[in-house]
Nucleic acid binder design. Structure first.
Lengths: 99, 99
DNA sequence: TAGATATTTCGACAAATATCGAATTAATAT
DNA sequence: ATATTAATTCGATATTTGTCGAAATATCTA
């Protein structure tokens, strides 16, 4: 859990996840979306991979990254746990919705 | 969003939220659950308050903290956004559940 | 008013983090 | 083979973060 929140605690990494939501991308393609050095992006990708928020496969000289959503489900479950006990007048929007 | 993830990116702060899930607590009561100085806990509570994950009210000499769940809903929504496009064989557990 | 209790603010410091450029590894192409 | 392209690893650095003890603030009580 710690490692997931750590991975999510950075605007660049969250934006990388948004990019990968649409389609898989190579490390270089991801780097092109930011004004940051490639080593920096590589490091961010490493953290995302450690958290298992992304996976990667080698395709020739490229490394293709994909988003992985199962870990997010864990976080979702954890967060939903807070909306059980203490819900008074809140949860009007999400409760009783099917996701 | 940044400030919320920042607040959640700490085991102590997440544990504080767990404590407050059951019932409202004073700053001192919260501090008693940890092997940390009161200034440290006060600082953690400040970050949680900045993220609006908790609120507090003064009751005499005490400061009582409550959990606030509406911000979590925002994060929940953000996270659920990732489970739309890219869902292949994943989301077996949560999808089609009512929360 | 004086003293006790609850909490926060302040100043300092060690550890963690994001970033960079240079060097390295791996694959492709000429 | 050699040069080129893609990506990572390495070493360094500035910033952020968690922690502490001491001091300050606020409230209660005798």
């Amino acid at each position: 859990m710690q490692i997931v929140f750590k991975a999510l605690n950075d605007e660049v990494r969250r934006e990388i996840l948004e990019l990968l939501k649409s389609k898989d991308l190579s490390a270089g393609e991801i780097a092109d979306h930011f004004n940051l050095g490639k080593p920096t992006i590589s490091h961010h990708l490493d953290l995302l991979r450690q958290a298992e928020l992304v996976s990667c496969r080698k395709q020739g000289q490229f490394v293709i990254y994909s988003i992985e959503t199962s870990v997010m489900d864990e976080v979702l479950k954890w967060m939903m746990g807070f909306r059980e006990k203490h819900s008074k007048e809140q949860n009007k929007n999400i409760k009783n919705q099917t996701i």
